[in-house]
């Protein structure tokens, strides 16, 4: 046996880059190992999207109105499936490690928290995209969608901008299980539910009670959905969606550093109070 000295002599940035790939690759390995559960969840979310699509089909009105409402609902369902996946993967970074019992090994490794969260974020985006493509193919067999004028490139651009802010939003939520192992996870589940309610996933936010509507403006999902619907249903350009893009850009610039700062404060607190331990 001999010990290679390679990790001791590499520059810091290269080691961090290798670790980013390590986190993404580990998540791929886990997806592969839990493949049956992945199929189950994919079938479940696809069925859920179909169910919501059929609400549109059964709504009555002209064929054009039905196609438009069905497309409106399915865009909500697909975009929520993708964005909630990113948020969940990021926000569960800590609880997942705690549950598996690897939290101490990960937190004493030299890879930085930016690296860890970046690796999780990269995988969440790639995996979320792959799931949505499979869902889209499945759904396209069932409905006549109103996508004649759709600007797909514009929609993809808005989704990409929103993904960055959602990764940051997930980082903010990821700190909760560091502060309190069980309650933290409960809080992030509530945050997901609130995002679902206020972001106008299946309805316009105008139908929400007056006091609730301003909350939608705090959610990146609201701007993403509004912009994607405009580009897909109305054929609007990416540039014309500036009103939806600038809040996403601001959130994308604020949430990741804020999330990282909060995460580091949370880690310090957990190390001081001895909460950085496995559970289960």
């Amino acid at each position: 046996m001999h010990a290679a000295s390679a990790p001791l002599t590499k520059p810091g940035w290269l080691r961090e880059l290798i670790a980013v790939w390590g986190y993404a690759q580990r998540n791929y390995y886990l997806t592969k190992r839990y493949v049956l559960w992945e199929v189950v969840w994919l079938v479940y979310t696809t069925m859920n999207a179909l169910t919501i699509g059929f609400i549109g089909v059964g709504s009555g009105g002209s064929a054009e109105e039905i196609a438009r409402l069905t497309t409106f609902l399915l865009i909500g369902s697909m975009v929520w499936s993708y964005l909630s996946m990113i948020f969940d993967l990021l926000s569960e970074t800590v609880s997942w490690e705690r549950w598996e019992g690897t939290i101490e090994y990960t937190f004493m490794s030299p890879a930085s928290r930016v690296t860890q969260l970046l690796g999780m974020g990269v995988y969440a985006i790639v995996y979320g995209m792959a799931r949505v493509i499979v869902m889209l193919i499945a759904i396209s067999f069932f409905f006549d969608l109103s996508l004649g004028d759709a600007n797909y490139l514009g929609a993809a651009g808005i989704l990409a901008v929103c993904s960055v802010s959602l990764v940051g939003f997930g980082m903010v939520a990821a700190v909760m299980p560091l502060l309190s192992p069980e309650k933290g996870q409960q809080v992030t589940s509530i945050v997901t539910a609130v995002l679902l309610l206020i972001s106008g996933i299946y309805y316009s936010i105008d139908v929400l009670p007056g006091w609730m509507q301003p909350l939608a403006y705090l959610s990146p999902v609201y701007y993403a959905l509004d912009g994607i619907r405009e580009t897909l249903l109305e054929g609007q350009t990416f540039g014309s969606q500036w009103d939806n893009i600038w809040p996403l850009l601001i959130m994308g610039a604020v949430f990741p550093p804020l999330g990282l700062w909060l995460f580091q404060r949370g880690e310090h607190y957990a190390k001081r109070t001895g909460r950085l331990k496995r559970a289960g």
Binding site: L14, I18, G22, Q25, R26, Y29, R33, T106
Partner: peptide, 19 residues
């Protein structure tokens, strides 16, 4: 990670240290 193999766990562990 109990569901991952020894090889997968070792590869991941090594990468955290830049290997």
């Amino acid at each position: 990670f109990k569901k991952l193999s020894s090889m997968e766990n070792l590869i991941f562990g090594a990468k955290l240290y830049g290997v």
